[in-house]
């Protein structure tokens, strides 16, 4: 069996099957939807951070751009949801293109600039002068296209495609060249890899993922405020989930979401400050004692994880 097929069977198939079948036996669809959103976002972070080493601290910018691209084309152009989803994705890619100059920065500088960029987009969207167009602080209401069942199915499709992309990156020449750039950009360039092209492509793919899932999120919840879809919790949760499991693998971000987001739903909603405390301690412990994530434990025991 080829390696990519084994990886698909071990990760993509069970996750997508669970996401697709659980709504039939479990009534809290919103919870499942949030899991799908975070599974997708964590893989999106994986694409850009795990494979190319850029820490997207403002990843939520793309998510919000997707949500607003979707909502505004539904509100002003009366588009059908699936077409509007395309606009959301285009908005995220456009923002990604606009931010490509940031890829010249490295390390902490990139993370900070990216965070600032996402906050700038939020300030523009919620600015009172643009209330006519974006509805400003009053938020968006899309009751006309409200259809949670269809939105959920589309979200599962996006999740499947995203997981497929990570399996591809994990097993392809392109994924390998991204990791080579991450580890040493100059040597990778010497080896004949087009560094700028590969980086930009990974960046835009990661933006596309967040834009698509952001659009579906807007569709699913259908009533939201700018601070909902630009909440820095999305970026931070996605990054921490991905890191906790272990980046540059397919399994790592999945494990991270299931464990940490599971804990969050068990105790985080009733007593958020205690969850925040545990969560902060977990992150610190992780960085200090297991900087390559949970899956690095398996690697230490000699098991090949997808």
């Amino acid at each position: 069996m080829p390696r990519w097929l084994r990886h698909t069977l071990l990760t993509v198939v069970p996750v997508v099957a669970a996401a697709g079948l659980l709504p039939f036996g479990y009534s809290n669809q919103l919870l499942l939807f949030n899991f799908v959103v975070f599974l997708t976002l964590a893989q999106g972070v994986n694409v850009i951070y795990g494979f190319t080493g850029y820490l997207p601290f403002g990843y939520v910018g793309f998510f919000g751009a997707g949500a607003y691209g979707f909502s505004l084309s539904v509100l002003h152009l009366h588009m059908a949801p699936l077409a509007a989803l395309g606009v959301g994705a285009a908005a995220a890619i456009l923002l990604g293109l606009l931010l490509t100059p940031l890829l010249r920065l490295s390390g902490a500088y990139f993370a900070i600039a990216n965070l600032a960029a996402s906050l700038a987009v939020y300030q523009v969207v919620s600015n009172p002068n643009l209330t006519e167009i974006t509805k400003g602080h009053y938020g968006i209401s899309l009751s006309g296209v409200f259809n949670p069942t269809l939105a959920y199915s589309v979200a599962v499709v996006i999740l499947a495609a995203t997981l497929g992309l990570t399996v591809y990156l994990r097993n392809s020449r392109f994924g390998l060249s991204l990791q080579a750039i991450r580890d040493d950009a100059i040597s990778a360039g010497m080896a004949g890899i087009d560094v700028v092209r590969a980086r930009t492509l990974a960046w835009l793919l990661s933006a596309l993922i967040a834009g698509l899932i952001g659009g579906v999120f807007a569709w699913y919840v259908s009533v939201f405020y700018p601070e909902t879809v630009f909440s820095s919790e999305f970026s931070i949760f996605a990054i921490v989930f991905a890191l906790f499991g272990g980046v540059a693998t397919v399994t790592g971000p999945i494990l991270g979401v299931i464990i940490l987001y599971g804990v969050y739903n068990a105790i985080g909603i009733s007593t958020p400050q205690y969850f925040q405390l545990i969560y902060g301690l977990l992150i610190m412990g992780l960085v200090l004692f297991l900087p390559s994530g949970l899956v690095s434990l398996f690697k230490r025991w000699g098991i090949d994880v997808p």
Binding site: G107, A108, I236, Y274, Q276, L277, G280, I283, L288, P291
Partner: peptide
């Protein structure tokens, strides 16, 4: 391996701990 990048995450964790304790 990459202290500058990991420091962002480590101190983010610390900031969460401080914020949680302060809220409590």
């Amino acid at each position: 391996k990459d202290p500058e990048m990991l420091s962002i995450i480590l101190f983010f964790g610390l900031s969460q701990v401080i914020e949680a304790l302060a809220t409590i």
